[in-house]
């Protein structure tokens, strides 16, 4: 594994400061702050309903925040006149339910955004889409429709689709939660490849083994706040907060 840059030496690429968000009367995120350095892999874990997925959606502007600041590459995500195109070129996202476009083939799914959003040359995009399919180990499945692929394969196409925009940060929202146990691994391997290439990754996950192996930093959220965080070794072996202890004892 290549040497990961030290967090303190590089500028953070994602920067959250005192983020608050609520749906109606329910406050989902209560003052969360953290930085993510370029090339860093962070894993967010926590019980369901603790605001993990919402947090990721706030980072790429899918959900508006009430107060606080989220900066991606010095771009304020919740500024009133945000260039959403610019933000989403930098931040890619992969969802729990894959959300592939069912009326398009795997290859077309990957090609759509670069062609229609970035207005890149179709032939070049196609070339790159083939490469991406190979990268996620799905060479030969280019002309399959999402309905003809397994969950794990669909999820890998979804990752390739996101990568086609050449993002600098990838958000993974419980990407293996809807998968069969035997296909979880193929998706995790793809994510690990990415992380090893130096992609900045924010993962919301329940795959503790994977998080422990890959993460540079762990965050445990409960009830909208970060309860505990730290490097994975310390986080898993010597958790301090009783809630973290309880959660880990249930899940491990």
């Amino acid at each position: 594994m290549p040497e990961k840059p030290d967090k303190s030496e590089t500028d953070p690429i994602v920067c959250l400061a005192d983020v608050n968000q609520s749906f109606g009367d329910t406050q989902v995120i209560k003052g969360i702050s953290f930085d993510v350095a370029k090339g860093e892999v962070i894993c967010i874990i926590g019980p369901s309903g603790s605001g993990k997925s919402t947090l990721l959606r706030c980072i790429n502007g899918l959900i508006e925040i009430d107060s606080g600041s989220i900066k991606v590459k010095d771009m304020e995500v919740h500024a009133p006149h945000l260039d959403k195109l610019e933000l989403r070129k930098i931040v890619g996202m992969v969802f729990q339910q894959y959300n592939l476009f069912p009326h398009k083939t795997a290859l077309q799914n990957i090609m759509m955004a670069p062609i229609h959003v970035l207005r890149q040359d179709a032939a070049e995009v196609k070339e790159r889409a083939y490469q991406l399919m190979k990268k996620v180990r799905l060479g030969g499945k280019e002309d399959f429709y999402p309905g003809e692929l397994s969950g794990g394969q669909q999820q890998r196409v979804a990752i390739a689709r996101s990568l086609a925009m050449n993002p600098e940060v990838m958000l993974f929202d419980e990407v293996t939660a809807a998968l069969d146990p035997e296909t979880v691994k193929e998706v995790l391997v793809t994510i690990r490849d990415l992380a090893e290439e130096g992609m900045t990754c924010l993962l919301v996950t329940h795959e503790m083994g994977f998080a422990r192996e890959l993460a540079d930093h762990m965050y445990f959220t409960d009830n909208g706040v970060i309860v505990e965080h730290g490097p994975p070794r310390k986080f898993f072996e010597a958790p301090e907060d009783p809630r973290t202890k309880e959660f880990l004892s249930q899940i491990l």
């Binding site: 969802f95 959300n99 959003v117 979804a158």
Partner: peptide
């Protein structure tokens, strides 16, 4: 249409019209 389709396309920077 599942809301995930809107989310996914929005996260890929498609405009509302697209």
């Amino acid at each position: 249409i599942p809301s995930g389709q809107w989310e996914a396309s929005e996260s890929l920077a498609f405009t509302r019209r697209q």
